[in-house]
Lab assay of single mutants.
Amino acid sequence: CHSECLGNCSQPDDPTKCVACRNFYLDGRCVETCPPPYYHFQDWRCVNFSFCQDLHHKCKNSRRQGCHQYVIHNNKCIPECPSGYTMNSSNLLCTPCLGPCPKVCHLLEGEKTIDSVTSAQELRGCTVINGSLIINIRGGNNLAAELEANLGLIEEISGYLKIRRSYALVSLSFFRKLRLIRGETLEIGNYSFYALDNQNLRQLWDWSKHNLTITQGKLFFHYNPKLCLSEIHKMEEVSGTKGRQERNDIALKTNGDQASCENELLKFSYIRTSFDKILLRWEPYWPPDFRDLLGFMLFYKEAPYQNVTEFDGQDACGSNSWTVVDIDPPLRSNDPKSQNHPGWLMRGLKPWTQYAIFVKTLVTFSDERRTYGAKSDIIYVQTDATNPSVPLDPISVSNSSSQIILKWKPPSDPNGNITHYLVFWERQAEDSELFELDYCLKGLKLPSRTWSPPFESEDSQKHNQSEYEDSAGECCSCPKTDSQILKELEESSFRKTFEDYLHNVVFVPRKT
């Protein structure tokens, strides 16, 4: 048989008469490798580009789960590009990614509803959504962080984005990388972005840091009482949809009607710091009717980097990364020049730590249904340095008659930039024990000054392991946590139920 035959053949030295091919099969003959313009397919066939392209389009058009959109890589027609490569849609070739590779997620039936953290986790790592997304989240724990972890990498949506009755959302900033909504599939009414009845939605994105392009379709905003109209108009300008909307697409009466839409800028007039305090004062603000001013709200939190936005980490279910302080308005003076500047002394802060701070007014709604208010920009203030805590785990070892090696770990709280350490030492008198000992005694162990690591005695271990207080009263049991108490109650309830079950099964009433 021919060298490319495997198993047997019907005619000697003829690659077209093989029972099976050793390498690849091409047009009725066995070959060692697939010549151009053919590609290896499933490690035994040679196919042309049209064959591989037909497989790709067949799966793409069917949208069946589990099928493969075949691509070409290293002269092979394979189910998908290997790690580190992405497909070129024009020629199906796998090309190296520039940075992290995109991950295209194809949605069944063309859309997916995100109504819980669990459903959001199914899209973790996706960068391109081939379909439409509907966000409908009523509640949950730590929602802002969970949504950002699972949806934060999405850069492109081919269909539309719909935010509907998501009472738990305060902001859409968890879509931190969303840059493009194509609108290839539109919501009824030709809408590519749809926001309806979101009672706590206050911000779409921080438009000073976020760009969003909507290729096709219109915007729809109705019944978002805490979303200011200025935020919607800003989205029109940034996304390129200005002029597409009709009169009733953006409701003037049901958007922002319960919001404090600040239209003035508060400026800080005085800032002073110490290692654990920050004193702030800002310019006074009074609405047209000074009785509408209820006070100020001061927001602050630790910020290692200057990239904080107002609604980071917030949701309507209680999660809030900001510390909020309510401040009463100052006494009002008739003389504008003698107006008191409101302020606040922030206490209990960490030394040498940068804080993000902003302040906003708290006002009631005027009778004319106009909203007044003022808010400052987010500023960054760093507390002063102070003395560091003591170095940890000092170790001293003498390696000769004239040297001592000293080692330690950095302090747990540096409280500033540590530039150097101060080492103090003092000579001590020799131990009298060394002169009084009889060095001729056998088995004498000389006193040693070398360091030995501390260890816990058996008594201390027994005390720590004991669940009861000892007789001397030195140790006591740790208080039980809520989960331990709940577990004990469940076990007790189970024992009672099981005992009742045994009584009912074992003891049967005697027939009379």
Rank of each mutant, 00 (worst) to 15 (best):
K103V: 08
V104E: 09
L108I: 08
E111V: 12
G125H: 13
R138S: 15
G139W: 06
G139N: 11
N141P: 11
L147R: 01
L147M: 13
L147Y: 01
A149M: 09
N150T: 07
L153P: 07
L153M: 13
I154A: 09
S158W: 12
K162H: 13
Y167I: 13
V170I: 12
V170P: 06
S171N: 08
L180Q: 07
I181T: 01
T185V: 14
E187G: 13
Y191E: 06
Q199R: 13
S208Q: 12
N211A: 13
L212F: 13
I214C: 08
I214W: 05
K218R: 11
F220N: 04
F221W: 02
N224P: 00
L229S: 09
L229Y: 12
V238Y: 11
S239H: 02
G240E: 06
G243R: 07
G243V: 00
R247V: 09
R247F: 11
R247I: 11
N248I: 11
I250N: 14
G256V: 07
Q258W: 13
S260Y: 02
L265G: 06
L266A: 01
K267W: 07
F275M: 12
K277L: 08
E283Y: 07
Y285F: 05
P287R: 05
F290L: 04
D292W: 12
L298K: 00
Y300R: 04
P304G: 04
Q306F: 03
N307I: 15
D315E: 03
S319Q: 05
V324L: 11
V325L: 12
L331S: 11
R332N: 04
P336A: 00
K337F: 13
Q339E: 03
Q339P: 08
N340Y: 08
H341V: 07
W344Q: 12
M346L: 10
Q354L: 13
T361D: 01
E368D: 14
G373C: 03
A374S: 05
S376T: 10
I378M: 03
I379F: 04
I379E: 08
Q382P: 02
Q382M: 15
Q382I: 14
A385W: 05
P394F: 01
P394C: 14
S398N: 15
S398G: 14
S400R: 11
I404L: 01
P410V: 04
